[in-house]
Amino acid sequence: MAMKLDEEKKAKVKLAVKRRKKEVYTPVIPDTQLGFVHNNVDCIGCRACEIACKDKNGLPAGPRFRRVQYVEGGSYPEVYAYKVNISCNHCAKPACLPACPTGAIFKRQKDGIVDIDSTLCIGCRRCEATCPYGAPQYDPEEGIVKKCNLCVDEIDAGRKPYCVMGCMMRVLDLVDINQLRQGVYDTKAIAPHETPVRAVKNFADPTLTNPSIAFIPHSKGKVE
């Protein structure tokens, strides 16, 4: 039977919790880190991944866990276009997680998925502000924040997320991001001559949270 604390001891525990929370956050180091890879060049921007995601998650107008961005430029005849496709990057050091005041956000030990239990969300939108990549999405109808959880139920069933399954060009894939970076993960999203990079033009600084994403960049979208 649990020991019941008197008021004085309760106050001491509260103070200790406050002191610890103020100073310490211990990041989760997952056994494996899953992440997306997107080929910016071969993506045709059909948005099937976006629609599959909205459908799977029953999202109303407004929140978009996944977003295909069309980047176009140049002057005739030297014009170009490419797509950048981003959802949650399930960062190695997610800024949203320690920011959440209710503990609604957590990172899974076994595969590094960053998930949010939206039923514990009070809608303070702090995670939305801290995420450098715009992943947490505010649902104005419910007043809470939701985000991509990598279709965790599909993962647990041995399948890939809806967005990956919906990609008809096979330019979006879910991979073991560390293996991919080491060049030992085979995916159809990357051609033999292509090398994945951590960031493309106007993507927020990846050193902020070490996002688990890789891109095959367009020549105009490359960063130093």
């Binding site: 170009y80 990549y133 033009k201």
Partner: peptide, 18 residues
């Protein structure tokens, strides 16, 4: 796009999706 930089030409200094 409800986000930044739909034109790679425009050096808007905005950040993707933010």
């Amino acid at each position: 796009e409800e986000t930044a930089n739909s034109s790679a030409n425009g050096d808007t200094a905005l950040t993707q999706r933010k």
